[in-house]
Simulated scan of single mutants.
Amino acid sequence: MFHDPRLRLLCVLGLLAGATAHMTHGLFPVMAAEIADLSPGQIGAIYSASVFVLLLVGPLAGLAADRFGAAPLTGARGIANTLSSLLYLIFPTAAGMLTGRLVDEAGKAAFRPPWGSLLAQAARGAGPRAGRVAAALDTALSVGEAAGPIIATLLWDIWGLAAFLLVRAGLGIATELFVTRRLRRTAPAR
Rank of each mutant, 00 (worst) to 15 (best):
P40A: 08
G41N: 09
G41K: 06
Q42I: 04
Q42F: 01
A45T: 12
S48H: 00
S48P: 00
A49T: 03
S50P: 00
S50N: 10
V53P: 12
L55E: 04
L55Y: 02
L56H: 01
L56T: 14
V57K: 01
L60Q: 11
A61Q: 04
G62Q: 10
L63I: 13
A65E: 08
D66W: 00
D66G: 12
G69A: 06
G69E: 05
G69K: 10
A70K: 09
A70F: 13
A71N: 01
A76G: 14
A76P: 00
A76H: 03
N81M: 13
T82P: 04
T82M: 15
T82I: 06
L83I: 13
S84Y: 03
S84C: 14
S85F: 00
S85K: 12
L86Q: 03
L89I: 06
I90E: 03
F91L: 11
P92R: 07
A95E: 14
G96I: 11
G96C: 05
G96V: 09
T99F: 10
G100Y: 07
L102V: 02
V103C: 09
D104H: 15
E105V: 14
K108T: 07
F111C: 01
R112A: 08
P114N: 03
G116C: 07
S117K: 12
L118R: 08
L118P: 01
A120G: 05
A120F: 13
Q121T: 10
Q121L: 11
A122V: 11
A123W: 09
R124A: 14
G125V: 05
A126F: 13
A126K: 07
G127K: 11
G127V: 07
P128S: 11
P128R: 13
A130R: 15
A130P: 06
G131Y: 12
R132A: 15
R132D: 14
V133N: 05
A134L: 10
A134Q: 10
A136L: 14
L137I: 04
L137M: 09
D138V: 06
D138C: 09
T139I: 01
V143G: 04
V143D: 06
A147E: 02
A147L: 11
A147F: 05
G148Y: 08
G148E: 12
I150G: 00
I150Q: 03
A152Q: 00
A152H: 02
T153D: 04
L154H: 01
L154A: 12
W156I: 05
D157P: 00
W159A: 15
L161W: 06
F164R: 05
L166F: 03
V167K: 13
A169N: 04
A169H: 05
G172R: 12
I173V: 15
L177V: 07
L177E: 11
L177I: 09
L177N: 03
L177P: 02
F178G: 15
V179T: 05
T180E: 04
R181C: 03
R181W: 04
R181T: 13
